[in-house]
Design a protein around this nucleic acid. Structure first.
Length: 821
RNA sequence: GCCCGGGUGGCGGAAUGGCAGACGCGGGGGAUUCAAAAUCCCCUGUCCGAGAGGGCGUGCGGGUUCGAGUCCCGCCCCGGGCACCA
């Protein structure tokens, strides 16, 4: 302990006070302007880890800073409390997921308080709370009614050993089950989906309207994967071009309709619906064998194959009529064509597509170039720009022009049109798990899928269940849960046993925070309108795709359905993604056993030192290595601040201001300007550096022969405590209380006095040919002529010039003069 | 392959086109002390030089500019995203 600085006692005292007095509680009718700060919904993993500390330090700093700036800051906290770990623990130990989860919520809550983070705890929500489940289910029903939720067959991961479906995360990289080690295969099962693809365009376009890191925006754009092209029909024919007896035809999607004259074959996905009907009798046995083999393979096997050797396919015996040339081309099946994208069928143009080229060379199919490659081109398929060739009426047109002409032609023929496709797929939300939000529907033999009436929500999972080591959901074997009455016909019905993906819970929690007591609706329009969009969202870049995409989709859909304000198009106006914490180069994780427990640091150095170390180590969006975090340096600095503010450094007297005093007063106001600017721009590491420089100045000042002027150093110290309060809330609160009796955190943010930001003199750099040769103290207000005169009068400059005549003088008073010879 | 970031001392990192390396860590020296810890003060890119001083330095090669870590062009390397998506 340094000179009465009892870190543990001080931090405990203030944490208790903030919680007990509801210091950061904020009501929806608060007259101050609203500001919503939110850190991403944490999974309650027990004690906080370093990633949490980093995340919540930034969040807390903003909450405190904005509060001092006069805002009503909404700072809620909740827990994403459904999910796999609790259920796995239940299978292992038999402990109910709820008791397991509640204990971990308790631990994480207390960890967050120990780092000094402040919240409106009255608004706390948890995903597994019946009142939250109720509204998750209510929203699902609204989506169902609007056609945004639907049930369809989907390939899922099936583990033959466990006899159950697995989540993607449970399938290891080599395609085996994490629990049994069996090879997981694909099965088609009925699953629930959200129709996020309805919003693909908006999700893409509105990215431009939010203030997010470019990296995250790019990730989202890639994931949505918009592509522009054309879709058109091709008739199935025989080798001579005679139509198929049953008149079959299929659509193809292409981004390069301008290359259609170069189509030398067509490819259907092996799962394509037409395969069985068009395969010729003599090819049937081979085709069936091929389709069988492909379907058995796990998806990742199919997608991870690379290069020509792996492009496997088979001829169907059927042909398609190329509408551009009116010539038949052979139809193949190939595993590189996916049933889930476009129409599940392509026109193959090997001259301009490398995949088609690879396939064509493997199967000895012809290749026609329809775009003129540059003279020096020596590759295979040419995918670049150029003039159309071998394309009749398209010849000579540049790519863009040719594409437009080809689409116009397809439309005129009535066989196709321009088309936009997306990589984004619908969101599969069914999970065959117990510890999640039940999907509120029943299956009735007579009425089909029937939603549970709103007044019967929430549908809750029963407690008297047994967790099976097979990994199957215990709901499947619970008769009381399973057997239901159809709400429509009152006949017997079976309850859905799947639960929702936990990403559903985190897709609307930020809305619930605005109105967590609402009993009539998930949230009121007024409450959402008041607080949303979130002004500052903070979290890890690992959620750049899924969570952020889903939350954006929910917000748009809820707004369109009238449950959120119509104008609310984006939930998170500003996003900050903080870097991850590593140790010795690798990511800190329980499984690697390289965790540095924040609790140990909190016990030894305290929350302020830990927070300061995180803020100082590097810019907040950078990944950091714990080895670089200098907790001792932070502690040392805080002790310096403590001694300074306790008046233990140097001497002070009452007197009229001397130049040294004026300099400190100016430094004080420069500090306000600097720290304010740096907080606004998230430059916390340099904000800390600024405070350190200031403290170094104050030490020199107070220890100088003249000592400090009392009024000057008091103002300096008070200002220091105020600007540091958001970073290190405990020590500043304690020191401020000792000096003034009230709380530093209820002070208004200091404003720099413009008069004290004006400096009287400046150090002017004198360069000769761009190299610094002299530094001259000058009056800050000097003009170019005077600056030039002073520079040329410099002896050092004269030495450098060596009699040469200056060719040109660039003067930028009062900072710089550059003499060119 | 395409798309985003990023390469600065021993380390983490500073720097609106205008003094490269702020601030901290580590290291060195001094003060204090019986001694140590703690604390306080000073030094610390690199090469040449006894010194004054000078040369060289922000991944590499060019360019723009009076002046480039910063802007432009072409590469190299590292991190991340997408990737048989037609």
């Amino acid at each position: 302990m340094v000179d009465g600085y009892d870190v543990q006692a001080i931090e405990a005292k203030w944490q208790q006070r903030w919680r007990d007095t509801g210091a950061y509680d904020v009501d929806n009718d608060d007259p101050r302007p609203p500001y919503y700060v939110l850190s991403m919904y944490p999974y309650p993993s027990g004690q906080a880890h370093m990633g949490h500390v980093r995340n919540y330090t930034f969040g807390d700093l903003i909450v405190r800073y904005r509060t001092m700036n006069g805002y009503a800051v909404l700072s809620p906290i909740g827990f994403d409390s459904f999910g796999l770990p609790a259920e796995n623990a239940a299978i292992r130990t038999g402990e109910h997921p709820r008791t397991y989860t509640d204990a971990r919520i308790e631990q994480l809550s207390s960890s967050l308080q120990r780092i000094g983070a402040v919240y409106d705890w009255r608004r706390q929500i948890t995903s597994h709370d019946p009142s939250y489940i109720r509204w998750s289910q209510w929203i699902f029903k609204r989506f169902l009614e609007a056609g945004l939720a639907y049930r369809a067959m989907a390939p899922v991961n099936w583990c033959p050993g466990c006899q159950t479906v697995l989540a993607n995360e449970q399938v290891l990289a080599d395609g085996t089950c994490e629990r049994s080690g069996d090879l997981v295969d694909k099965r088609d099962l009925e699953q629930w989906f959200f129709k996020i693809t309805d919003y693909a365009d908006q999700l893409l376009d509105d990215i431009d309207t939010v203030d997010w890191p470019e990296r995250v925006k790019t990730i989202q754009r890639n994931w949505i994967g918009r592509s522009e092209g054309a879709e058109f029909e091709m008739a199935v024919v025989d080798a001579d071009g005679n139509p198929h007896p049953e008149g079959h035809a299929f659509g193809v999607y292409t981004t390069r309709p301008d290359t259609s004259f170069g189509m030398t074959f067509a490819v259907l996905a092996p799962e394509h619906a037409l395969v069985a009907q068009i395969t010729s009798p003599e090819r049937r046995a081979d085709v069936d064998a091929f389709v069988d083999r492909v379907r058995k393979e796990a998806e990742f096997d199919r997608l991870s194959t690379e290069g020509p050797a792996h492009k496997r396919g088979i001829f169907t015996g059927a042909y398609a009529l190329n509408p551009f040339t009116q010539k038949p081309v052979p139809i193949y099946l190939a595993d590189y064509v996916l049933t889930t994208y476009g129409t599940g069928a392509i026109m193959a143009v090997p001259g301009q597509d490398q995949r088609d080229w690879d396939f064509a060379t493997s199967y000895d199919l012809s290749i026609i170039r329809t775009v003129q490659p540059p003279d020096d081109f020596d590759g295979e398929a040419y995918t670049g720009d150029g003039r159309a060739i071998n394309s009749e009426w398209l010849d000579g047109k540049e790519k863009a022009e040719a594409i437009a002409a080809a689409i116009a032609w397809l439309e005129a023929q009535g066989i196709g049109a321009g088309k936009v496709n997306f990589r984004l797929r619908d969101w599969l939300l069914s999970r065959q798990r117990f510890w999640g939000c039940p999907i509120p529907v029943v299956y009735c033999d007579g009425c089909g899928i029937v939603a549970v009436p709103d007044e019967d929500l929430p549908v809750l999972a029963p407690d008297d269940v047994e967790f099976l080591p097979t990994g199957e959901s215990p709901l499947k074997f619970h008769e009381g849960f399973l057997r239901a009455e159809c709400p429509t016909c009152h006949g017997p019905a079976t309850r859905e046993t799947d639960t929702m993906d936990t990403f559903v819970d985190s897709s609307w929690y930020f809305l619930r925070f605005t109105d967590p007591w609402n009993d009539e609706a998930p949230f009121g329009l007024d409450a959402v309108a008041r607080w949303l969009p979130v002004d500052q969202y903070i979290g890890g870049v690992e959620h750049a795709i899924l969570h952020l995409m889903y939350a954006r989709f929910f917000t748009k859909a809820l707004a369109d359905l009238g449950h959120a304000p119509k104008e609310l198009r984006e939930p998170f106006q500003q996003l900050f993604t903080q870097g991850t914490v590593r140790l010795g180069g690798s990511r800190m994780s329980k499984s690697k056993g390289n965790l540095v427990a924040p609790e140990v640091i909190l016990d030894r150095e305290g929350a302020d030192a830990l927070r300061l170390a995180h803020l100082f180590v590097s810019p907040p969006n950078d990944d950091i290595d714990w080895e670089a975090v200098t907790i001792e340096g932070s502690s040392r600095f805080l002790a310096r601040v403590w001694r300074l503010a306790r008046g233990e450094i140097g001497t002070s007297t009452d007197r009229e201001p001397m130049p040294a005093d004026t300099a400190i007063e100016q430094a004080t106001h420069h500090l306000i300007a600097r720290i304010t600017d740096e907080y606004e721009r998230w430059h916390y590491n340099t904000a800390v550096a600024g405070c350190m420089e200031f403290v170094n100045d104050l030490y020199r000042y107070a220890q100088s022969d003249e000592g400090a002027r009392t009024a000057t150093i008091d103002e300096a110290i008070d200002t220091l405590l105020q600007v540091m309060a958001p970073m290190v809330p405990h020590i500043t609160a304690e020191l401020w209380e000792a000096r003034h009796g009230d709380s530093v955190h209820t002070q208004t943010w200091p404003v720099a006095d413009p008069a004290k930001l004006v400096v009287a003199t400046a150090t002017m750099v004198v360069q000769v040919n761009g190299k610094v040769r002299d530094r001259i103290e000058v009056d800050a207000g000097i003009d170019e002529a005077e600056a030039t005169r002073l520079a040329l009068a410099s002896e050092k400059v004269a030495g450098q010039l060596d009699g040469a005549e200056p060719r040109k003088v660039i003067a930028r008073p009062p900072k710089l003069v550059n003499i060119v010879v």
